[in-house]
């Protein structure tokens, strides 16, 4: 009697568990469908295309790993990748150098805080393409703002074409990206700052720690996860940079600002080699995943801390 009841109960329990699992699956189904349609299938398609000679027009043919072998010899792609890393490094440092002080500045309530927050965050809601068009005009030597203004104020002898040589052109882009992105990073960092318990800071003050020591020993370690998030977003975004270089510089001056994505775009839609473009995308994907893993590992939770 008892045995029967127990079995029945177990069976009922199993059905209940089963049912719960099925219901759970039902709940995540929309998300799974979205991921499948918009990520898994395109990714599989890209991988499949990368094994073909796939012109934009005409017949495609299977070529195995030929595209990947060609990538090894494609010096212009590796140069583009080198430039992309250089750009990512500089722009990430620049964004953090601006966003961190801003985050500290707006974290504490003070008069007009909301105004500052909004103002700093505003450029982040502009699309990258629109922002690039705006700056493309600002930087124009004849009809823009910076060069004519500097000339009219007597700062320069003649109108300087900021986009004509590498250094000014590159730093103009950095300035534009920092203007556009720092506000977003600032908000992420601010939430990190706000999650640090006030009593820790107060205890440190009582112990006689100065502001710098508090920043190094309390703020930074407790912001590990926030920093990791902001860093990964910034690095991934920068490695995929395209719009600003395409719209403002066209990869110039003299092809010195061709990024990896720009090169993929050129191969796919200027040279019409979709298969080769797909292979390049796969290579970039692998690099990006590897980089993100390294960052997560570097900023992992230290042992013993929860």
């Amino acid at each position: 009697m008892t045995a029967i009841t127990a079995t029945a109960a177990r069976a009922r329990l199993r059905t209940a568990t089963n049912l719960r699992q099925w219901v759970g699956l039902l709940y995540v189904l929309p998300a799974v469908a979205l991921v499948t349609v918009f990520f898994v299938i395109p990714l599989g398609m890209t991988a499949w295309m990368s094994l073909h000679n796939w012109p934009l027009m005409g017949e495609h043919s299977f070529v195995g790993l030929d595209n990947y072998v060609a990538i090894l010899r494609d010096t212009r792609f590796w140069n583009a990748l080198k430039f992309t890393f250089y750009y990512t490094m500089i722009v990430t440092i620049a964004i953090f150098a601006v966003a961190f002080p801003l985050a500290i500045f707006i974290e504490k309530p003070r008069p007009l805080t909301n105004l500052y927050r909004t103002a700093f965050f505003m450029p982040a809601v502009v699309g990258f393409a629109s922002a690039s068009l705006l700056w493309s005009w600002l930087l124009n030597v004849d009809s823009g703002l910076f060069s004519p203004a500097a000339y009219d104020l007597g700062l320069t002898e003649k109108k300087v074409n900021l986009l004509a040589t590498f250094q000014p052109a590159f730093w103009s882009i950095i300035a534009m990206v920092v203007w556009k992105v720092a506000g977003f990073t600032m908000i992420i960092l601010m939430t990190g700052l706000q999650s640090i318990p006030q009593d820790l800071q107060e205890a440190a003050v009582i112990d006689g720690a100065g502001p710098f020591a508090r920043f190094r020993a309390i703020t930074l370690p407790l912001m590990r996860r926030t920093l990791a998030l902001a860093l990964i977003l910034s690095v991934a975004g920068s490695i995929l940079a395209f719009d600003q270089f395409y719209i403002i510089l066209r990869g110039g001056p003299r092809n010195q600002t061709l990024t990896a994505v720009y090169w993929i775009f050129n191969q796919s839609f200027v040279s019409f080699k979709l298969g080769y473009g797909a292979a390049l995308s796969m290579v970039l994907l692998v690099i990006l995943v590897a980089l993100s893993l390294v960052q997560l590992w570097l900023l992992r939770k230290p042992e013993g801390l929860d």
């Binding site: 004509a164 066209r250 990869g251 110039g252 001056p253 003299r254 092809n255 061709l258 720009y262 050129n266 200027v270 040279s271």
Partner: peptide, 21 residues
């Protein structure tokens, strides 16, 4: 297109370099 018209092709790069570089 690859040789001449592409904004990042060898011809475009060359004309800019030889006229101003």
């Amino acid at each position: 297109n690859d040789l001449i018209n592409s904004a990042n092709g060898p011809w475009t790069q060359m004309v800019n370099e030889v006229f101003f570089g």
